[in-house]
């Protein structure tokens, strides 16, 4: 029997080769987080510098300074830490609750139908407003921001996993698995989970992008991360009043970073989905 000699391996190196751009983006985000934590910033991001006042980008202040004289570059980079770590925590919480819920509700039982219907009703509620209320009622506790992100994203995870698992259970190879006599826990672990992993990963990067937007929205509205701690949302808000008078840089650079992160994460999600369907052929 002749066998094809092309041997494909679904490994990380192939992914890097196929999606150079998305990988470069992911690298950028990692560097950003590391820089915000460890890199020596040119100025103290939380210290005002009244002597300087608002000034456009220059050699001294790459992204210019804001109305208090704070260095926009240092603040933008420093904000990455708080914004991205909150987003990561929120995404993680959504993941560890949403995925098991999705697996659980994929059994065809009355209670799971009810739970799904309940979640649907919950999703019909304007979740961003709920998040807003929750965080402000808690007295701007940061952990509440994480909870809010999870509340928004858990139903999405659940639905997605559920529908994916439901269609997988109809797959012929799952029927073959039953015919072989594979018990359900092993079938879930060995046959279902590996086939939804790619989708979970793609969804997780999307959730991360969504979380960044939610955090920025909240802090733009003055909820969650409060000044002087730098966050992209509050910096945009602070800079928005300067926009009218032509001092664009204060709001522009944090805005650009939100945009960049969301865009990169979306690209990464697409790349993962694409890679995921390719590796089985």
């Amino acid at each position: 029997m002749a066998t094809k000699t092309v041997k494909k391996q679904s490994n990380f190196r192939d992914f890097v080769q196929m999606h150079k751009f998305a990988v470069a983006g992911a690298f950028f985000i990692i560097v950003l987080i590391l820089a915000s934590l460890f890199a020596p910033l040119p100025y103290d991001p939380e210290a005002p510098n009244p002597g300087v006042g608002i000034s456009p980008p220059s050699a001294d202040h790459w992204f210019g300074t804001d109305i208090t004289g704070g260095d926009v570059f240092s603040r933008t980079i420093a904000a990455a830490w708080i914004d991205l770590s909150l987003a990561l925590a929120g995404t993680f919480l959504s993941l560890i609750i949403g995925v098991p819920l999705g697996l659980l509700t994929s059994v065809k039982k009355r209670w799971s139908d009810n739970l799904v219907r309940g979640m649907d009703a919950f999703q019909a509620f304007p979740l961003l407003i709920l998040a807003l209320v929750l965080v402000s009622l808690s007295g701007n506790k940061l952990y509440m921001v994480v909870v809010a992100i999870a509340l928004i994203n858990i139903p999405r995870y659940m639905r997605l996993i559920r529908s994916e698992v439901l269609s997988l259970r109809e797959a012929r190879f799952m029927e073959a698995t039953t015919a072989v006599g594979v018990p359900l826990p092993r079938a879930l672990r060995k046959h279902v989970l590996p086939n939804v992993m790619g989708m979970i990963t793609a969804q997780t990067t999307l959730t991360m992008a969504n979380a960044i937007v939610v955090i920025a929205t909240l802090s733009f509205l003055g909820i969650g991360v409060a000044p002087p701690t730098p966050s992209w949302g509050s910096m945009i808000r602070a800079g928005s009043s300067n926009m009218i008078s032509g001092e664009w840089w204060v709001a522009f650079f944090p805005g650009l970073f939100v945009l960049l992160c969301v865009w990169i994460l979306n690209q990464l999600s697409d790349a993962i989905s694409d890679f995921n369907t390719r590796t089985i052929r």
Binding site: A176, A179, V180, K190, H191
Partner: peptide
């Protein structure tokens, strides 16, 4: 008591 299905590819877990 075993079985072989019609669709050869669909009856195998593509990631195993």
């Amino acid at each position: 008591l075993q079985v072989v299905f019609q669709e050869p590819f669909e009856s195998l877990n593509p990631r195993m």
